[in-house]
Amino acid sequence: MAAIQPRINVEYTEEATIIAFTDERILEDTDVRALREAVESIVEQAPRIHLVLDFRHVKFLSSAVLGLLIRISKRVYEQEGELRLCNIHPGIYEVFKITRLTNVFEIYEDVESATQSFSPRP
């Protein structure tokens, strides 16, 4: 497992790349920018990535992070990859519901179910 700054942990398995956000709160522009750069650098290097974003540590985020997730999602699908979110705290899940981003993202209970949901690789 590799640590990139204090923001994310990255785990590579046979089925997926799993990125866990390590901060409890993601608010400021500098946080969002650091996350964007870190995640996009991984996505750019891996066409057809099976990417899981793990929110187990995150207790609070702002709408700027939702914009970041949409940007990541677009990039993943442009590269013919697939994206899953998981381990979302109930308070944050409510934010996804209010903004109807539950219709945009595939959200799973845990890393295991998210990983198992990907289409089989050709």
Binding site: S62, G67, I98, T99, R100, V104
Partner: peptide, 21 residues
């Protein structure tokens, strides 16, 4: 309204929606 159509994929309006919610 950030919940409608293509607005779902744009950055504007989510903060205000959350404040109202």
């Amino acid at each position: 309204d950030p919940r409608v159509g293509e607005n779902l994929y744009r950055p504007a309006g989510r903060g205000l929606l959350l404040i109202r919610s």
